[in-house]
Amino acid sequence: MTALLEAEQLTVGYGAAPVLHSVDLTVAQGSITAVLGANGAGKTTLLRTLSGLLRPATGRVVLDGQDLRGVKVEQMVRRGVAHVPEGRGVVTELTVDENLRLGGLWRRDRVDAKRALDEVYDLFEPLARRRRFPGHQLSGGERQMLALGRALVGRPRLLLLDEPSLGLAPKVTAQIMGLLRTLRDRTGLTVLLVEQNVRSALSVADTGIVMSLGRVVANADAATLRDDEDMRHAYLGF
């Protein structure tokens, strides 16, 4: 398997104290990788660094062999990176349709952007029924669909998802996890999934990374992590 994304020795801090300490990471093309760990482990900081919202103090991020140092955030989407941030990032003042169109505005291929938009409406039927609704009128599950759909309109190669299950009913979470697997199988999408919900993340992931206090403490097959009782007790809480 070839690596789509590699992080080397990432150290990132807000102010003086680093939040990530020398993090190394490899995400294989077409895989789903779960990033697990307690609150404050640095998971969100990791995603924000990978998408360029935060600049590492040291280390680098490499996407498909290309060093991303110096690449602006707004250029990342053009390189195939979609980041669905914590709290989903739906622009609640805009309508469903405007949010989705926003996901494809950067694309030169207007025909395919339109096609991708239609595909998202096919994929998420509740969104199609609420095209003209402002984002603030959507339920949590619909907002997650919208954020995910908006990322997909850009036809990303790498999807960075921050806590998609947060505040969602187990059934909706399961649907979203199932969808990620479908997308990986059908389109070869690579997913890096930050989750508190360890069971549901490991149910869909190929590999898992466990973080604690800003360091990667384990990096293994999802199945291995599921079966490692010590690891589960120590870091994953089940």
Binding site: K72, V73, E74, V77, H83, L94
Partner: peptide
């Protein structure tokens, strides 16, 4: 409008 309401999200979506 998106930039005004949600600058970070807009940048992630490729908006200057």
């Amino acid at each position: 409008r998106a930039s005004a309401f949600a600058p970070d999200v807009s940048r992630l979506l490729g908006v200057n």
